[in-house]
Amino acid sequence: MRRGSEILIEILTWLASLIPAILAGAIISFLLFNGASAISWRFITGFPEKGGLEGGILPAIMGSIYVSALCMLIAAPIGIGAGTYLAEYAPENVFTKVVRFFVELLAGIPSIVIGLFGYAFLVHGLGLGFSILSGAIALAFMILPWTVRVSEEAIRAVPREYRYASLALGASKWKTIRSVVYAAARSAIITGLMLGLGKAVGETAVVMMTAGMGVAGYIPASPLDPARTLPVHLYLIAGEIANTSEGLRMAYGTALVLIALFLAVSIPSIMLRNYFTRRLYGDAG
């Protein structure tokens, strides 16, 4: 009797643990099933017509790429710098505690508040307008805690012996960090940043309130151009097309492209990250 219920419970927990996989699989295949027929050369490389209800999504794809790339260009160096300071230079003092506390605080701020702040401060206050630059800065604020954390973790995970060896050979501290620590932590930092990029690509509210919602007949070129990114495009056209209409495929197609972009960034980094975690900490977790 006992054995039976033991097995039952194990099966129950096993089923529960499969739910995330089932959900992720179901969502992706739902979009694939409904959206695959919308994907065409014209859809990927065309310009939106009728407010995005027809035509293509090229400006949205490019907008997404520009905004998240510029965002990483801002957040990654600051994050790596801060991570380096926290892991290498800072003694455990009040300042580092304060920095860590503030990083956690920043991570806890709901993204919508960052969006509202970005709209008020960047778009309106600084007069940057709805633009790729406003969107990228606001997004960078959002993922900064993430980039700080992953960099610090990755740098801390580098064994001390590496540093001792380098310092013993007469290398300066910076030389050691540059040639030894970064080299050892590089893959972990990059995968961490890639995951951050995945967040940036998918973020909607912050970008909508800072980079704008306009449909454009051109590909944004200057950082001061407004851009409607893929998630914003999806949000705006979702609910604008009747369920019965052929045009609904446009929305599915947009969702599919968005999730493909997200998966292309995320899956390799998740797999690499799991691999590194395993290698560094062993299997016990």
């Binding site: 407010g51 709805f130 704008g212 919602m213 306009g214 449909v215 454009a216 007949g217 051109y218 070129a221 151009d225 407004p226 409607r228």
Partner: peptide, 8 residues
């Protein structure tokens, strides 16, 4: 001309 139109 680079014109962007937001329906808000």
């Amino acid at each position: 001309f680079r014109i962007s139109v937001a329906a808000i």
